[in-house]
């Protein structure tokens, strides 16, 4: 029973992390039908910048919740700038070209950012501080979930609520929905498409930065390659849930997280990826657009 509970918590945590990253993939795809392969790297850069800020702010005497929030905020702002610049440099000039061109550009940016961080920071593994302060209700959860697991799940849940409200209630959210449905019509109605696309990249990057910071605190280690595997898994989750759909990304991430966790726990860790990807094949065979995806007809 304890194993079952622990595996549930582990699946939920893993799914939450995938969800934070998968949102960036799915939102960008929803707006401009581009798979932003460099998104995993933004997550990695988020972890690195939060570490740098935590050292600087820690030296200034900040600690506890203040330090965690300040690091998260600064990393989010920094990554948002990266996401914004990335779009301007690598994708905007290629808008209107064949769909392959920005895809190749995305893979190139991913390799570039990985190597850039290796050069200016380090190719080695870095120890990550545990920035999450002790939780007040930790006693009740001891043995079931660690504080970093609680923090990850809580942060993801809050981010999802905030994002849903943003998309449903604000003018920019409305514009995003409009551009996603019909970019030409949205432009004709006076929507500034450039701003909508930039905001999408910015929002996706903010979530990735939060994910980078939290997973750094949980695993207590980062390196310049960590974005690749995490990005791949999150991308898989986004496809599983139906790429382009925000609730789909969350559901896909949770399915992936839980299936990996239970496969490793009850079968063998050799099968965690096998189970996850067999599930992906099954779902895509039955529902080619993913769980929440809407069927789109190719307009030729």
């Amino acid at each position: 029973m304890e194993l079952f509970l622990n595996l549930c918590v582990s699946g939920l945590t893993k799914g939450s992390i995938y969800a934070l990253i998968a949102l960036g993939y799915t939102m960008v795809y929803g707006i401009i039908a581009l798979i932003n392969f460099a998104h995993g790297e933004i997550y990695m850069i988020g972890a690195f910048t939060a570490l740098i800020f935590s050292m600087a702010l820690g030296a200034l005497g900040l600690s506890g919740w203040g330090l965690l929030l300040a690091c998260g905020l600064l990393a989010a702002v920094y990554c948002a700038m990266y996401g914004w610049t990335l779009e301007k440099i690598a994708y905007k000039p290629l808008r209107g070209q064949s769909r392959l061109a920005p895809l190749i550009s995305a893979i190139g940016m991913s390799i570039f950012l990985q190597n850039y961080v290796q050069l200016v920071q380090t190719p080695n593994f870095l120890a990550y501080p545990d920035l999450i302060p002790p939780l007040p209700f930790a006693g009740a959860l001891s043995g079931v979930a660690t504080k970093s697991q609680v923090a990850i799940v809580a942060a993801t849940a809050l981010s999802m609520i905030a994002l849903t409200l943003f998309i449903k209630r604000t003018r920019m959210g409305l514009a995003m929905r409009a551009v996603s449905q019909d970019p030409t019509m949205a432009r004709l109605s006076g929507v500034n498409i450039d701003r909508v696309i930039s905001s999408t990249f910015v929002i996706g990057s903010v979530f990735a930065a939060v994910g980078g910071l939290l997973i750094g605190c949980a695993t207590r280690q980062i390196d310049s390659y960590q974005g690749f595997l995490a990005g791949m898994k999150a991308f898989t989750a986004a496809v599983l849930g139906g790429i382009g759909s925000v609730p789909g990304a969350v559901i896909g991430s949770l399915i992936l997280g839980f299936s990996e966790s239970f496969a490793a726990g009850y079968v063998s860790s050799d099968y965690e990826d096998v189970v996850a990807f067999v599930l992906l094949i099954l779902i895509l065979t039955l529902r080619p657009d993913g769980i929440m995806g809407s069927a789109t007809t190719q307009k030729v």
Partner: peptide, 19 residues
């Protein structure tokens, strides 16, 4: 058991070791 190097978490294997 094996762990996939670079995974975002090793929690599932850790739970198994604990068990």
């Amino acid at each position: 058991e094996g762990v996939t190097s670079g995974q975002v978490s090793y929690d599932a294997v850790v739970a198994k070791v604990k068990d």
